[in-house]
């Protein structure tokens, strides 16, 4: 049980008066895809930023790949890659130059070869020599994810990787994410799309009003669903129904 790749305990974070995280706990097992689910402003990005050493928590601990994010940030950065909510690519460079840049900064051997392989894998070879400023949103996102994979970091954070993509591009990103986990990486992704969590994740945690209000596999979460309502619906409840039901009850309690 102690071999969890990500271990978050009692995380608190406020922006001035706004108490965004109020004791967040969750664990992620190695080689799994973990989805952090929450609506706008729930604090998903805040959690990801703390885990990727961009932000300091006010209280609580977070351990990534065995390293404490506050005490050993340099080791954490060696272990992770971050694909932020908004594509972090260099618009003035070409797609290939972006990849070479990251490969050099990650001190990889043969940056050109790495870039070409990734361009191929993400179907960007044709656009490789074009400035990223001319890329579509989906191409940008694919490049963004490709940049994050350089150096094969064991832990990958994807903050809303498919927001703003068309259905086709979404499926492509999903496939890449599955591939990553298939290669043994641990993936933590955040999403507002319940079907995305349903599609990809082995474990799902729902972040709501500053805490994790439910966590488990899709099957486990479905059991939390009030059976009385099951009788009314014909198909299996979707995660969306579960989410709405749980948030409704916690709203009543608080």
């Amino acid at each position: 049980m102690t071999t969890q790749v990500i271990r978050v305990q009692g995380l608190h974070k406020s922006y001035k008066d706004l108490h965004v995280l109020r004791g967040v706990d969750f664990d992620v097992a190695p080689g799994t895809i973990f989805a952090l689910l929450g609506s706008n402003g729930a604090g998903k990005t805040t959690v990801v930023k703390i885990l990727s050493t961009l932000l300091k928590a006010d209280a609580g601990t977070a351990v990534v790949n065995g390293f404490d994010v506050a005490a050993q940030p340099a080791n954490v950065r060696e272990s992770i890659s971050l694909t932020g909510q908004f594509a972090a690519v260099d618009e003035i460079l070409t797609g290939r130059e972006n990849l070479v840049l990251v490969a050099r900064l990650r001190h990889q051997k043969g940056p050109g070869k790495i870039a070409d392989d990734l361009l191929e894998r993400f179907q960007l070879t044709d656009a490789a020599a074009r400035k990223v400023a001319t890329y579509s949103g989906g191409m940008r996102r694919r490049l963004d994810i490709a940049m994050s994979l350089i150096g094969d970091p064991p832990v990958i954070f994807l903050d809303e990787p498919t927001t703003g993509l068309d259905p086709q591009a979404r499926i492509e990103v999903w496939n890449s994410v599955r591939q990553l986990a298939g290669r043994g990486a641990t993936v933590l992704l955040t999403t507002q799309y319940l079907d995305e969590a349903e599609q990809l994740a082995g474990q799902i945690a729902i972040l709501h009003q500053g805490t994790i209000i439910a966590t488990g596999t899709l099957a486990e979460l479905k059991q939390l669903f009030p059976p009385a309502i099951v009788e009314y619906v014909e198909k299996q409840p979707s995660l969306e129904d579960i989410f709405l039901a749980i948030t409704a009850t916690t709203a009543k309690e608080s």
Binding site: L54, R77, S81, G84, A87, A88, D90, E91, L105, R106
Partner: peptide, 13 residues
């Protein structure tokens, strides 16, 4: 603004 700054900050450089 563009987020590339945060990418650099999250990398082992």
């Amino acid at each position: 603004q563009s987020g590339i700054f945060e990418r650099f900050q999250s990398m082992p450089i």
